[in-house]
Every structure is written in C-alpha cells, then in structure tokens.
Design a protein around this nucleic acid. Structure first.
Lengths: 144, 144
DNA sequence: CTTTGTTGTTTGTACATACAAATACAGTGG
DNA sequence: CCACTGTATTTGTATGTACAAACAACAAAG
C-alpha cells in the first residue's frame, strides 16, 4: 500500500478497469475447460438460446461493437460451433450440434465463476456491486 | 431492453467489463487533448510526481503487468516525455521537461473526466460506486 | 425506377494488455 | 569466489476490442 499523491483509486475509470482485469483473470480460469474465452462463451450461449439471432442483436446484448461480433462469429464458425445464414443484409446465427454440446459446460463454468467471486467478495456484496454497476451502465449507455 | 433468458447483467464479469468499456470511451475523449491514452497519462503523472520511480513500482500502482510497463515506457520515451535510467537490473524513470509540461493538461483532463461521469451518475453515487469497486479490487488482489 | 438516406455487416488497421520464456543482475550459503 | 535462487526487465507472441471506412441491401420519396 504505497501511498500515492494521485488518488487513482478515486477515479472510476481506473477502478473500473482494474476490476475488469481482475474479473477477466478469474473468468479466463473458470472458462478454460470450455475451450472458449468468456466473451465467446456468452455469445455462443445466446445463440444456443435464440437460434437465428442476428449479429446486431448480439452486439446489443453483449454491448460489443458490431465489428467485434463479426470476428467472434468468424471464430465460432471456424470451430464449427455456429452456422451463419446470410439473408439480405443481415446475418443470422444458428448453433451446430457441437455448439449445443457446449451449453452445459458453459453453464457450469459460469456458475463456478459466480461461486469463485462470491467466495471472495461475499455473495450479497457481490450481488449488490453487480447491480450497482449495472445501473451505472444503463445510465451511461443512454447518454452515449 | 430485449429480454434475455441468460441474465448476463447479473454477472460481475460481464457488468464490470461493460463499465470499463463505457468509462474507457469517456476517458479517451477527456484525454484526447493531451495526446495520450488515459493509461499513459496516469503513468506519466506518477513519473512526474515521483521522479526516479521504478517500473516495478509503477506496475503496482497501476495494477498492470510489468511487460505492459515496458511498452508504455518505450512509448513515453519515444515521445521524449520520460527518460530511462538503467541501474543494475532496475529501470528508473524521470520526466523530461516536455513530460512535465503535460502535468497541467493531464490534471485538467482528469478533472473533466470526473465531472463528465459525475454529471451522469450523480457525484455522490459516482464516489460510492468507485469506492465499492475499489474495496472489491483490494480483496481480489489479495487472493491473486 | 432511380436517387438518397439508413441500417447491418465486413475489412483494414491499431491499441491495450497479457503470459511465458529469455535475460540480466543481485544476494546467499558454501 | 562459485553455484543457486530469486527479482526486475525485456521480448515474442497472442487476444480482445475498437473505430473508421467500405460495402451491401433495403426504404422512402420524388
């Protein structure tokens, strides 16, 4: 705890990024068994649940840029976890059987991630923090 | 607000990353005038305040990997904003006059970032959220 | 039915960041 | 003084993510 005349930990940009990196490490470990990064896993999960979902919709659900979704879709398609259907200007994604087979492992990894950080932060605090952050995101999104 | 049977917004990994991206965008805008990314600006700030600081120390203050600090130092040195002094195995960083000249612009950008998000979240909520996140980070760091 | 604006996707490119392995130095027990 | 161990840095390489520009398809209006 070296002292620091610039109080970076009082800056939301700074703390938010540090938290994201911390959680990223944890999530990477938790999802390692699935062979997918957490973000790819979330994406596949959405495709499994809503076959035919478009990339636009995915980018909204995941708050990721459309171009990012293109790359992710490339990657999942390359591994035969989803199939793309181009209809007009939109692209719809459907899970393959290999993709669906990952549903369970992903759900488990996700649960395990939840347990991991709950163990450190306390379940209740974790839930509250998550909810507070989510509220903040809603306001920030609206003004973007 | 499309509904989603997978409640990603109840996952701390997910919300934390979304917040980091949101804040990142804001910070990029706020720091644009300085010609530096927010992270580089923070680093330069620390060097300005503690001339002779080592990369190890910087990596602790900034919660960034040592290798990342090497690249950042490269970049700042390349733009003649810091000078490196290799002494034994450690590297100490000193600001140049150009680096020091950026102190003020950086401080202003930082303040402006603070005002920006405070305007959206409310100053008090912003402070509380930042502090909550900081607490969480402290616990997560300890167990890494 | 053509022009013009809007929306969904893709591509080129760039950046922050990380991990693992390599390197270079420093300190210790023999 | 030497071998061994630990610590600070660097390098190679990879990933996630973004923006801006290009592109493709549709919609609306003249």
């Amino acid at each position: 705890m070296t002292q620091c005349s610039t109080y970076m930990h009082e800056c939301l940009y700074f703390t938010a990024n540090a938290l994201a990196r911390n959680m990223g490490k944890m999530a990477d470990k938790a999802f390692k068994g699935t062979g997918l990064s957490p973000s790819h896993a979330f994406m596949l999960m959405l495709v499994n649940e809503q076959p035919g979902i478009t990339q636009k919709e995915l980018s909204e659900h995941l708050s990721l840029a459309p171009s990012t979704l293109t790359r992710f879709a490339d990657s999942l398609a390359y591994r035969d976890l989803v199939q793309r259907e181009h209809k007009g200007k939109t692209v719809r994604l459907y899970p393959t059987s290999a993709g669906m087979a990952l549903s369970e492992p992903i759900a488990q990894a996700w649960k395990s991630l939840y347990l991991d950080y709950s163990a450190i932060l306390g379940e209740k605090s974790g839930i509250e923090l998550t909810s507070d952050i989510d509220q903040a995101n809603k306001r920030l999104d609206d003004l973007a």
